[in-house]
Design a protein around this nucleic acid. Structure first.
Lengths: 142, 142
DNA sequence: TTTAATGCAAACATTTTGCACCCTG
DNA sequence: CAGGGTGCAAAATGTTTGCATTAAA
């Protein structure tokens, strides 16, 4: 599982597996379908009585992104959000322009198409991100 | 053409069509396949002898985005890039992780697929963006 | 006990804003 | 000439970094 991979990465780099890193890791891999930003992680940990500085949260997030276990995503705001890269199938996000809610979707066909587009341009595709902006079911009513 | 649309928007909002706004507009719609950020626009204008403050550039960019004539795009950096929304066909970007070069691609099939994904979720799609990251032909050689 | 991790505050980078003065309509 | 536009500097945001202290291994 992912925690093991994180620990392995840390020891391979002679880095330390600390309580703080574990808490941040858990907060992202908590299973809830959320895409927290650094501040939200900070807030959630605080509400559980864990005072972790924002600086450390940013440092750990960068570490997790480097390991490849976490993706940094952009919802058109001025800050980044983070999500576990558990689902092997690449997925995109439906972002509601009214309430900000985010819903994931996945579609293998798109993945195939994009790989082919890359090939046509002699471009070696590493990863891709799709953000779809619009209005969710609830907000359309208003 | 787009300049007319910009002028119409300005007068409809009782805003003014100034020399500065025209220069910024031209810099984005210059026809070159570039996706400048605010600072690059500033630099390019300066090199032509036009001293425009960054604040004004940002204000004008926000205005152009609001009119719908310009799109704000994100290449995974800490700042936004801007491009004219001329091409009716939605397109994505191939962003080289090594040299930063950006190449556009378009694919109607993806557009159709995404519209359908929206429908399945009762999500009213407004716009979407696809960024593909990888390595361009030249950088693969290194 | 050695080396990395953390918190804090300061530094940074990008973008926005308040205000005095300037220019367009 | 009235009301919006602009430049400037300061503020606001989000993120990173230097350094002294703390804690893994």
């Amino acid at each position: 599982m992912e925690l093991k991979a994180f620990q392995d990465y840390l020891s391979s780099q002679k880095l330390k597996f600390t309580r703080t890193r574990l808490m941040i890791f858990k907060e992202i891999f908590s299973g809830k379908k959320v895409h927290p930003n650094a501040y939200e992680i900070h807030k959630r940990l605080k509400s559980k009585g864990h005072e972790v500085s924002l600086a450390t949260i940013y440092r750990t997030l960068n570490l997790l992104v480097k390991t490849g276990l976490v993706s940094e995503i952009d919802f058109g705001e001025s800050h980044s959000h983070y999500e576990p890269k558990i689902s092997k199938a690449t997925h995109g996000h439906l972002v509601c322009l009214s309430c900000g809610k985010v819903k994931e979707f996945s579609h293998e066909k798109i993945q195939t198409i994009i790989k082919n587009i890359g090939k046509e341009s002699y471009f070696k595709t590493d990863k891709f991100s799709i953000q779809v902006f619009g209005y969710c079911k609830d907000c359309q009513k208003k």
